[in-house]
């Protein structure tokens, strides 16, 4: 398992990306993150809900109550136009950052 604070700063983008693909609910997102990373990264649910709150406050996400599971009503999240713009911005920023870090990390073991 990698250090989660490396990823922490990019969680907003990761979660927005997953919600961009389709509307999702909390547990689905944490499962999706684990499976796509082959369990190399598992998000703590507490962190996930904190991100939801933050993104909703910033109006990058909206939520609605949807399908009924065995427990109760699931809360689904959907991305807003602002969220899409933010994600696009994040991707561009990440590319630049990645380039810079690579300059110093590549070519070494």
């Amino acid at each position: 398992m990698i250090r989660s604070d490396f990823i922490r700063g990019h969680l907003d983008a990761i979660i927005l990306r997953l919600i961009l693909e389709k509307d999702r609910y909390g547990y689905e997102i944490s499962k999706e993150i684990s499976s796509r990373t082959n369990d190399r990264y598992q998000i703590k649910e507490a962190t996930l809900y904190a991100v939801f709150q933050r993104l909703e406050k910033k109006e990058l996400l909206e939520s609605y109550l949807g399908g009924i599971s065995k427990g109760g009503k699931r809360k689904y999240y959907t991305i807003t136009t602002l969220g899409k713009a933010y994600l696009k911005e994040s991707v561009a920023e990440w590319k630049v950052t990645k380039n810079i870090i690579d300059l110093f990390m590549e070519g070494l073991d």
Partner: peptide, 16 residues
């Protein structure tokens, strides 16, 4: 609202 959401998702995880 968050407590409900958290509980609902945790339940699903437990079922899973």
């Amino acid at each position: 609202a968050i407590m409900e959401e958290v509980l609902e998702n945790l339940e699903e995880k437990v079922w899973d």
